[in-house]
């Protein structure tokens, strides 16, 4: 564990908690993409299957359980909670998320380190995580006016990605044989997807204005 990975995990945790707190306290999920949340639930469910087969640390196991629990809670709130579900922007959140799942599955079947069930699913989760934010970014562009919490959620998620890249650089420099092309490329693609959002986020912050994305 290094400081970059810890900072990445903490911003990731903060992003999910900000979202859960928003949904739980103001009973609204306006501006939140259910498609993205369902993709994250799939990402965690397929990546953390090793919870049953390998043990790394109490921290690792605990965080996995938190991410699984929080992502499925958010999906549950948005789909079934009687007040929250009415605030969901159903008509705007039209991204066909299955068009992301299938290519990622195909890619994981073709490009992986080992052809085993757990390894292919783990690789699939990396590919899917890289693009899972897309429905949320599309929804943000459509609704344009973004409330602070949704903006902070995406900002924190982007921060998590940035810290993980620093973590990989640090590990590459300090640990022998630490070369992981699949993780790195998927992670880099994911981080780049946030670049556009970050540009507008910082502009609105600099000008002290409400975040608005161009149509």
């Amino acid at each position: 564990m290094n400081i970059f990975r810890l900072a990445g995990d903490m911003t990731h945790l903060a992003s999910v908690l900000v979202l859960l707190l928003k949904i739980h306290t103001i009973k609204s999920c306006a501006g939140v993409s259910l498609k993205t949340q369902e993709l994250y639930a799939i990402v965690f469910a397929t990546r953390y299957l090793d919870i049953f087969t390998s043990f790394y640390s109490i921290y690792n196991t605990l965080m996995k359980l938190i991410f699984l629990g929080s992502s499925f809670s958010i999906v549950w709130y948005m789909r079934y909670h009687k007040t929250v579900r009415r605030t969901y922007d159903r008509e705007q959140d039209t991204f066909r998320h299955w068009f992301l799942v299938l290519p990622c599955l195909l890619l994981a079947l073709l490009i992986h380190e080992k052809f085993t069930f757990l390894e292919v699913l783990w690789t699939f989760s990396l590919y899917l995580e890289a693009v899972a934010i897309l429905p949320q970014l599309v929804l943000l562009q459509r609704t344009r006016n973004i409330d602070n919490l949704t903006g902070q959620y995406v900002f924190l998620l982007g921060g998590y990605r940035g810290f993980y890249i620093l973590n990989w650089i640090y590990r590459y420099l300090t640990e022998p044989h630490f070369v992981h092309w699949i993780t790195w490329i998927a992670g880099l693609v994911q981080t780049l997807l946030y670049a556009d959002f970050f540009y507008y986020y910082f502009q609105s912050w600099k000008n002290n204005k409400k975040l608005q994305l161009p149509a």
């Binding site: 990975r5 090793d50 790394y56 690792n60 965080m63 783990w122 993980y164 973590n167 990989w168 993780t183």
Partner: peptide, 10 residues
């Protein structure tokens, strides 16, 4: 021993 894999990450 250190695990030189990203599997120990989240």
């Amino acid at each position: 021993p250190k695990d030189h894999s990203t599997k120990d990450e989240l």
